[in-house]
Design a protein around this nucleic acid. Structure first.
Length: 656
RNA sequence: GGGGUUGUAGCUCAGUCGGUUAGAGUGCCAGCCUGUCACGCUGGAAGUCGCGGGUUCGAGCCCCGUCAGCCCCGCCA
């Protein structure tokens, strides 16, 4: 196939913008063949570009033989340049933005051909499996759905930059090659060639730098920055992700929150939603008590109820034991009203029980009020009085289903927090079109870590204690609240931040509380402690997860749908095959040895006569030292004397 | 680190109790077709049943191992 040159050919219009008003105009268009429909004497081509799709048409009776020959060659995803005249269609397509018109082709350039795509590029057919989509991401990204998501992402970034600029923020870039931090997630490390044995770490966030910029007096900082965490992935987590990172001087939590609320008010119109500020505030303790989660989905209004007291006199040992535990363990429950809930089948309840077990419960006690009255896994312990008391404690009326969990607050919150959402979704008790923002505030400052037998920072070690709880830091660390706040949207944590510690003394006592000694603190955070001692202003900030935010705005349930080139759940890029082995030369320069087992290839040569030296079978491998590519030895194999030649199998691109 | 699930034609999937030549839709190729837009009609090509081992007279199906995708728990200041 002969390709045409682009030459000076340029488009006069975008494909998606042509309308009846353009009829009669000669236009030049560029794009990809979305679909060619050859009806014999009539040929239609749907031409796609970034802005839309328009139909091209040619008639065999009027078109030149050269043009017809070219049109016969066009296949899906060919790159075309077209000259033609805009005409009103005989048969209009109301399902298409440009459906009133078509382009009568006068000239066609085939700028490039295309192999048959291995995955459908069309949104109308079922999409391919995700490994295929990731391997051929450049084709997958041609689909309207993904183009829409990524264009939305671009819009969100733009609105964000404009918003912060309008509010007098300064945009910074902070280092990608920085120091490993002892707290928090696992770091991605980068070896230093110049300093053998030493490593940079990729930033988990620009936390320290944005604080230092406050010490420098910039007062209002913004960065849309890439962050890296080497932890296992989820549908809403990638090893590298983007934060909208914000820091401000001389602020209270409400000041930071107000700025962020203003941004959300400007972002939601991008998807024709509107939210009003201020957003509700919910204390961490209440969030856990009512919703069993520190990121409650308020699209469901059902709350967890404490029904422990109802079982104080009960014959039901499991529940009564909790009632007698002086608050160590409690019985908590959820009430789902309605006929559908009240007629939940045994099978459905069994499935729910499996879910409860998955989240650490022993089983799922339930009470169901349906057409035939009460049915419950502990019915024999429920006389009429106990039943009435239970209904009152749950706030239950009419038909419906109640499920229970017993145990520590941590255990019951986990189970009921999950069941609340599952059942509400299954029973249609949630308005999924809503956007429910809220702030979860007053997080604990520290939490006890069993593994290390010490307290660790819930948020990060630079978070300021709540002013009312300052003295608790030394006396009762677990009870000390933090000036930390999370922005939650529809059950997702889309951002989190805090007021920071701004004096060296408080920062030192914080390090002390989490078991970082003075030497380690000096070694790891000396620059921060120094900075705090040179007139650091009170400051605080927040970071928003851009990927998650765009995911929710785009209405998709996976972060990969809003990232151009995402990684798999095993943190691998199927497009580039990263990560991959490097040459031994590269490793030598970095003074790095791997403990990965080396692979060897062994060849065997049979002798006709007995050689002088006989060695143990493994000597060939043993003598294969660092700098040798091959080694030979002799051995006895099935009574015969053989020569074994062993060679190390090099990694790809090895220069050894 | 653990659990669940998936892997069969380019793609999406079906494949019964272990039994003849592994099917469908779509895509692709060819021919026909003057108003299609998921074009239509006719015909055709197309398979390492993820990979390796085992059981069996016989394995897409059963067993063991392994690789990869997805989801979840742990983890993610």
């Amino acid at each position: 196939m002969r390709l045409d040159k682009l030459g000076d050919f340029q488009r006069t219009h975008k494909n998606g913008e042509l309308r009846l008003t353009h009829v009669g105009q000669t236009v030049r268009l560029l794009g990809w063949c979305k679909k060619a429909r050859n009806l014999g004497f009539l040929i239609f081509i749907d031409l796609r570009d970034r802005w839309g799709v328009v139909q091209l048409v040619a008639n065999a009776e009027t078109a030149s033989p050269e043009l017809l020959a070219k049109l016969q060659e066009v296949r899906s995803e060919f790159v075309l340049g077209v000259e033609g005249v805009v005409a009103e269609r005989e048969a209009k397509n109301p399902g298409m933005v440009t459906g009133d018109i078509e382009i009568r082709i006068t000239d066609l350039k085939i700028l490039n051909g295309a192999q048959t795509p291995p995955i459908p590029v069309d949104d109308s057919t079922q999409e391919a499996n995700e490994d295929m989509r990731l391997k051929y991401r450049f084709l997958d990204l041609r689909r309207e759905k993904l183009q829409r998501n990524l264009i939305l992402r671009s819009e969100v970034a733009n609105v964000t930059r404009n918003y912060f600029r309008k509010n007098d923020f300064i945009e910074f870039e902070t280092p990608i090659l920085t120091n490993s931090s002892p707290e928090g997630a696992r770091d991605y490390l980068v070896p230093s060639r110049v300093h053998p044995g030493e490593f940079f770490a990729l930033p988990q966030s620009p936390q320290l730098f944005k604080q230092l910029l406050q010490v420098s007096g910039f007062e209002r900082y913004i960065q849309i920055c890439r962050c890296f965490r080497d932890e296992d992935l989820r549908a809403d987590r990638q090893p590298e992700f983007t934060q909208i990172d914000v820091e401000m001087s001389f602020v209270r939590p409400v000041d930071v929150q107000t700025v962020i609320e203003g941004l959300m008010v400007e972002l939601t119109p991008l998807i024709d939603k509107h939210v009003t500020a201020p957003f509700p505030r919910l204390a961490y303790r209440d969030a856990m008590e009512w919703y069993g989660s520190d990121k409650p989905d308020l699209r469901c209004t059902i709350r967890i109820q404490d029904v422990t007291a109802t079982f104080e006199q009960s014959e039901f040992n499991l529940f009564r034991a909790a009632a007698e535990s002086h608050g160590q363990r409690r019985v908590r429950g959820l009430w789902f009203p309605g006929e559908v809930a009240g007629s939940y089948s045994r099978k459905q309840l069994d499935e729910l029980g499996d879910v409860a077990k998955h989240y650490g419960a022993g089983g799922l006690p339930y009470a169901k009020w349906g057409k035939d009255g009460l049915s419950s896994s502990f019915k024999k312990f429920l006389d009429a009085n106990a039943e009435a008391a239970l209904k009152a404690a749950l706030g239950a009326e009419g038909e419906g289903l109640a499920v229970f969990a017993v145990g520590t607050d941590e255990q019951t919150s986990k189970v009921l927090g999950e069941l609340r959402l599952r059942l509400a979704k299954a029973l249609g008790l949630m308005d999924l079109t809503k956007f429910e923002f809220l702030w979860v505030v007053d997080f604990p400052l520290l939490e006890w870590n069993e593994e290390d037998a010490r307290f660790i920072a819930c948020h990060h070690p630079f978070t300021s204690p709540h002013p009312e709880d300052l003295e608790l830091l030394d006396t009762n660390p677990a009870a000390c609240r933090a000036q930390a706040y999370d922005l939650v949207l529809n059950g997702f944590e889309v951002g989190g931040g805090s007021i920071r510690i701004h004096d060296a003394e408080t920062q030192s006592s914080m390090f002390r509380a989490i078991g970082i000694g003075p030497e380690e603190a000096r070694a790891k955070f000396g620059h921060l402690l120094d900075a705090l001692s040179y007139g650091a202003p009170p400051h605080g900030g927040l970071a928003l997860g851009l990927d998650r935010l765009v995911m929710l705005l785009a209405g998709v349930d996976n972060i990969r749908e809003v990232i151009a080139f995402p990684k798999t759940a095993q943190a691998r890029c199927l497009l580039t095959n990263a990560p991959s082995p490097v040459t031994s030369k590269q490793l030598r320069e970095l003074r790095i040895q791997t403990t990965q087992p080396q692979q060897y290839r062994a060849g065997v040569m049979f002798f006709e006569s007995v050689p002088a030296e006989l060695q143990a079978p493994l000597s060939a491998l043993r003598t294969l030292s660092m700098n040798q590519a091959t080694s030979t030895s002799t051995m006895v194999l099935d009574g015969e004397i053989v020569k074994v030649e062993t060679s190390r199998i090099p990694g790809p691109e090895s220069d050894d």
